[in-house]
Design a protein around this nucleic acid. Structure first.
Lengths: 247, 247
DNA sequence: CGTGTTGTCAAACACCGTTCGAGAGACTCG
DNA sequence: CGAGTCTCTCGAACGGTGTTTGACAACACG
């Protein structure tokens, strides 16, 4: 190539780039921030569920490459933690009223479950995780303000947070599976359940009298009912620690 | 485990296999059986943990190819279910004695947790799963025999199994993570915990009096202590359903 | 003998989380 | 005005994953 030959017509300085070669639309994409990434991840989670939540998919949702995410977030696990904390902030705590502590605790339990169920598969993230930010402080203070006046010992209140979170998370997790673990055969869950019931009823009467009789009861009740039972049992247990008589 | 301890009520010999678990075929003389695969999977799980448990790895353990496994097992999830059920059969139930129901229930809880912790990461499998074979029948019957004489309503007993399993599983699951979720920063878990405590103590005194004071309490107590608390709370709650006075 | 049936498995498929290194763009300093 | 540095993006690649496919071997039965 004769590089030294003057070729002014070959000068491309200032010429517009042909549209088919523009690298990317300059500013159509929102800036990539931690915030935006968490938003996108939550959006993907809500629509595609946990199995659809891949780094590549989150990148796509942002109109960005998967690798870019790693500049803002250590790894997928940290991203999940952020999504979890963000969702937990949706919880609203009423002003604590010790005279109705059982009711308020029950309501909170219902609300937490609702939040975990509102965002698909968030319950799967929640397990073994706890909020670490200001949220946990607000919760703790709320619990103490509600339960200390009833006479429940500090240690019990302190441990209760864990237990409470564990139950709500585990229950919602089970729900999020939606019996998908149950179809170990090709059958739909309910049909499979019917099989188990039949199996139970077919057991020898002399050794399994109760089980035979309770086969229906064991699988009866909707999710709400069973959830409420667990919450109720915990509250009843708590009650035995209270020194102040219930209002 | 004392495998030689006589447990006639636990004997599942001669009980019919539930129809959904019948093996594909007796298989004349093959090195690869369902049984052998489950064994191998459990061996891999014990030594390499959940992350190391891949179909290829199980195949290798058997001196076979990964694809071969799919002849005997529908997919990985079914394999996990089988491993879970196998481990659950390690539980030993004492002869139910209603006069000591609280104690026996507590002991069972401790034992279940021990089993889940004995086999590395089995707790991770257990969540959202329940045994579906004869084991669940034996458990159910045991529960009823123990609790019905105390006057606890059938429905409560029926629901209790779920709740019990949920708590044990969720707790052991959390343990199996071993705080690995906590090192969202590079720090080791305990150091990170100290940070949270410091954070709590630094909160404004007027809005977070209890939290400031209870910062230590919240993270105090070893796992055993916290586990026992949850079990105790459930048993206390159960007690309120009993009509027969405690012995 | 042929013809199924049962069981094995290498190769391929379509993903995954994560790392690397080249680069673009914006800022600061001499 | 460079030159340098720092922030940020991302294509390509690495080493895995669960699962499917199709070819193939070993045996059973008529």
């Amino acid at each position: 190539m004769a590089a030294d030959t003057p070729q002014p017509w070959r000068d491309i300085e200032g010429l517009p780039e042909p549209p088919w070669r523009v690298a990317r639309k300059p500013s159509s994409r929102a800036p990539l921030t931690r915030q935006a990434i968490v938003d996108a991840a939550l959006r993907v989670l809500d629509s595609d569920g946990m199995d659809g939540l891949s780094m590549r998919r989150v990148g796509e949702e942002l109109g960005a490459g998967a690798a870019s995410i790693y500049w803002h977030v250590r790894n997928k696990d940290e991203l999940l933690q952020l999504v979890f904390e963000r969702v937990m902030e949706e919880a609203e705590l009423p002003p604590p009223d010790p005279s109705r502590w059982q009711e308020q605790l029950g309501t909170l339990a219902v609300q937490m479950r609702a939040i975990l169920n509102r965002h698909r598969d968030v319950a799967r993230i929640s397990l073994g995780r706890a909020p670490t930010g200001p949220t946990v402080a607000v919760f703790t203070e709320w619990m103490f303000t509600l339960l200390k006046p009833v006479g429940i010992p500090d240690k019990v209140i302190a441990y209760l947070g864990d237990l409470f979170g564990l139950y709500v998370g585990a229950f919602a997790f089970e729900e999020s599976l939606g019996g998908e673990v149950l179809d170990i055969q090709g059958q739909p869950p309910e049909q499979f359940l019917e099989m188990i019931k039949d199996y139970m009823r077919s057991l020898p009467e002399d050794r399994f009298p109760y089980t035979r009789q309770a086969a229906d009861l064991i699988f009866a009740g909707d999710r709400d009912d069973r959830y409420a039972f667990g919450v109720d049992l915990m509250i009843r247990g708590l009650q035995t620690f209270a020194t102040e008589p219930p209002a």
